[in-house]
Nucleic acid binder design. Sequence first.
DNA 1: GCGACAG
DNA 2: ATCTTGTCGC
Length: 309
Amino acid sequence: MAAVAVGWVADAGASEADSGMVTVQRPDFVPDPCLDREAMESLQREIAAEAIFADEFDFDPAAVASSARSDAEQTELGDPATADDPATGASELPIVAGIDQAFQSSDGEPAGPGEFDEAVSAVVAMRGGEVIERVHAGSDLQIPYIPGLLSFREGESILAALAELSVEPDVLLLDGSGRIHFREAGIATHVGVTVDLPAIGVAKSLLCGTPRPDLAGFDSLDDLPAGTIVQIEADDAMETDRGTVVGAAVQTRQFDSPNRSINPLYVSPGHRVGWETAAAIALATAEEYKLPEPIRLADRWVGELTAAE
DNA sequence: GCGACAG
DNA sequence: ATCTTGTCGC
């Protein structure tokens, strides 16, 4: 049997009464896996036209943390910004939500690659470096993985999980691309625009686009020291004007010795963030490990949820 | 026809 | 994404 019941699942933190802080703002953009390829692609162009690839939010991006802040650090940020509000009980530190998927077969058998029929999405919401809520939900997979159409495969599951949140994240971190996409409408853009929340795409490999040639005399992106950010610009594979900065390669970690090296993350704006802020937030939330902590925890948890018993 | 492709 | 042990190097 499947490790997780799919269709309606939630966990921890929330009672049903106060859920529903993340809602679909654009029902016409909800990913429909039954559309044909042409319809999917034209919907993506509509979504990209509505996406905002510049900072448009009210939280302080510098207040995003990967680990719990010390009192000293909190003081540096200014007390009013970090003190809990006695009336609402809410802190003003931004809430960052990481989202990741895992797959399973409903018959519970150890299916081979590409033979899964259910997706499970996990959302881990963090504030000030601490987990404040986590939820998950699943959906049946309708279509296979097709490069460029990922959101139509995994979007339903993601939106179902987000609907279970009892808090409203200030920004979403998704596994995959945002603006680094043939039509500037990767999964982070699709989800972000649909729920109208700031969203950032964090991919482990590059879908399209090309790193800006010009940097610091390193042989490869894989050799960049931790903290390095290299712009990614649109190439001929994209409908975007060639040379447009659509994201960044971000080295969050690097080995001490030059023997081995780590490949960077490819970070891109999904919605309501510019590439600079997207890169800064990815970097700020990935102090301990390569992946931003909210995504890493979502990845780990969803793996546990879908693990065979 | 060739190349190229998140999860 | 997923199936999987050991193995190389700090």
